[in-house]
């Protein structure tokens, strides 16, 4: 049985902010299904008493003081932006 439907692919694509065509949705449904089916081998493992590893090093939260310092200028911050206006980044309208 297929674990991942085409509808699910479209839902996930929306969450990931990706536009997928019908053909791509079909392809991803099959490929992701293959990968997920393969990954389900992990269910063979008894992990009830195993702590998850998020990180291999013994690091605690690393904090620094919240103080202002020089990083880049406004001009630098804008120079790679696709569209700017009045010293700000311009984007399409958010509200209808």
């Amino acid at each position: 049985m297929s674990r991942i439907s085409k509808e699910q692919v479209k839902h996930v694509a929306n969450l990931a902010r990706l536009h997928v065509t019908e053909d791509e949705a079909d392809m991803f449904a099959k490929q992701l299904d293959d990968i997920i089916s393969f990954a389900e081998q992990l269910n063979e493992l008894d992990t009830d008493n195993v702590a998850p590893t998020t990180h291999v090093l013994d690091l605690k939260n690393v904090m620094r003081k919240d103080e202002p310092k020089h990083w880049i200028t406004q001009e630098e911050a804008l120079k790679n932006a696709p569209e700017t206006q009045d010293g700000q980044i311009r984007v399409p309208s958010i509200l209808e």
């Binding site: 991942i4 699910q8 692919v9 996930v12 694509a13 969450l15 990931a16 990706l18 991803f28 992701l32 990968i35 997920i36 990954a39 992990l42 269910n43 493992l45 992990t47 195993v50 702590a51 998850p52 590893t53 998020t54």
Partner: peptide, 26 residues
């Protein structure tokens, strides 16, 4: 990105992402 978004999405997080983190420990 699709695989990762799926593994982190509501209802699948424990079954895939967290399970994999535990396997990583082993």
């Amino acid at each position: 990105i699709m695989l990762g978004t799926f593994a982190l999405s509501s209802g699948y997080y424990d079954a895939y992402y967290k399970k994999a983190q535990k396997a990583r420990t082993l």
